[in-house]
Design a protein around this nucleic acid. Structure first.
Lengths: 261, 261
DNA sequence: TGCCGGCCATGACAGAGCGTCATGACACGG
DNA sequence: CCGTGTCATGACGCTCTGTCATGGCCGGCA
């Protein structure tokens, strides 16, 4: 089965380093930061991050604060006693816990801003742009909308245009859509989604993922009986396909026949 | 009628300048920043702000971005092309409009962080502390709870302890409580509240204030028939009195007999 | 072939937070 | 004594989030 490739993003030469050990989250961040014309490189360990840092000189770092190496990386980035060096790379921290204590500790470690899960891609982009432009003092281009097959996503307004209809997404729905879209054509597990949106602390037996997938679906498709864009792969998870026609099988079937791969 | 004075706040010598032309908002900010052991001085005009700036050397500035002189003051504070000077006073901007464009413009003007109305005192405090400690690189004390008469308010948890019961407030309810508490014993108009919490853009004929006053009341008083702490002054507005016994008139009467003053 | 069990979609619901509306009590002024 | 304006109150609508019970479909297995 062939699937449209995501369009190659335009770049402005702006670079972002991501320290995160969940590939799905990295994909999400990459797709989101494309709106800000960032090119993203991911590191799963401190060593990788340092290599990228030395050779690539990123303009922004997005750091999972729950990662074991986050503190070490922040040290390397020029944090010192809550007072960051002027020329250091601006850092956006991601955290599972949103209480004030956790946030203040993150700032102590040298973060420029902090984002608690679950967040929306809109917030991620906004904060990334803010701290990045503050560090460099230059304007930053934003591409408010991207097109994926038959879908157009406006990240700022949190709207999706599919065909003639325009719908507004909630933060979590937008997160979910970006997650799936960043892996277009591939299957994403429920557990991966749960982990990427809420963090592993969340109740794994919960039904939340289904719930929001369902909300997304009902917003993306005009009529009830024509499932589009999001297919179910039984026993495995969900799969996003940006064009309707590429689904291939009969409309009305949500199930993805391509089960064994 | 005598009313308990608010306790004189402990200070840590940390100073905050507020540029705002609504005295009620200034009171709110003052009471809120007391949790961070700030001493507050307010300016209604650029001239006043400059005088305070020169003689008082504040550690933090809270600036109403809808104020005519906000841009000029930000210039004075060392903003230049989105790139702020290192030693400049950190600035927290307040704005009525919360869209991304407005926020980005605020950052362009040199703000360190931006807060859109309606916000909760908890957020105001958290962001103030974050940008202030980032600028100075020192630890900042927080007093999580303050006591007003028979009421104890935990700003971080957004909880209120009145007697034996503990209740959780929403952001707007907390804002409302701080607003009234910062003018303890005095009457506050509906329009003033509307303006201070939502901004004047809001529909003036709306019932929102009553709605949230009611919610606050029902959370502060255990039993239905004993109104406490928040009295109605017919034709004028509401009045907060931190102790029950000081209400003076018969329990069961929500109305404040002290109408003509 | 027929039954069972697992996976998933669906509808219903809960509950917080926010805002609106209609009604009715109450006091005041004429 | 009645009308008017001011408030309190209950009821409702809406969005967002999360939970639960049900029932359909399919595949595996006897």
């Amino acid at each position: 089965m062939t699937v449209d490739r995501l369009p190659a993003p335009a770049t402005s030469g702006r670079r972002a380093l991501v320290l995160h050990d969940r590939p799905l989250v990295v994909n999400l961040i990459e797709l989101t930061l494309n709106h800000g014309l960032f090119v993203v490189q991911a590191a799963g360990t401190l060593a990788e991050a340092e290599a990228i840092l030395a050779s690539w000189r990123p303009h922004l770092a997005v750091v999972d604060m729950d990662h074991d190496d986050s503190t070490a990386l922040l040290d390397r980035l020029g944090a010192s006693n809550g007072l960051r060096e002027r020329s250091a790379t601006p850092v956006l921290g991601l955290t599972r816990r949103g209480d004030l204590q956790t946030k203040l500790r993150a700032f102590d470690l040298g973060v420029d801003d902090i984002l608690a899960m679950p967040f929306s891609p809109e917030e991620l982009l906004a904060r990334s742009i803010v701290i990045s432009r503050r560090a460099t003092g230059t304007e930053m281009p934003i591409v408010p909308a991207i097109t994926l097959g038959e879908i157009e996503i406006d990240i700022v307004k949190r709207e999706v245009r599919a065909g003639t209809s325009v719908v507004h997404l909630s933060g979590i729905e937008q997160h979910l859509l970006y997650l799936l879209a960043s892996r277009a054509g591939q299957v994403v597990t429920r557990d991966e989604i749960l982990d990427a949106v809420w963090g592993t602390d969340f109740v794994s037996e919960s039904n939340v993922v289904d719930r929001h997938i369902r909300a997304l679906r009902s917003k993306l498709q005009n009529d009830y009986r024509h499932p589009r864009f999001i297919a179910t792969v039984p026993g495995q998870g969900y799969r996003f396909i940006p064009t309707f026609s590429n689904l291939g099988w009969d409309a009305g079937a949500t199930r993805d026949p391509d089960r064994r791969r």
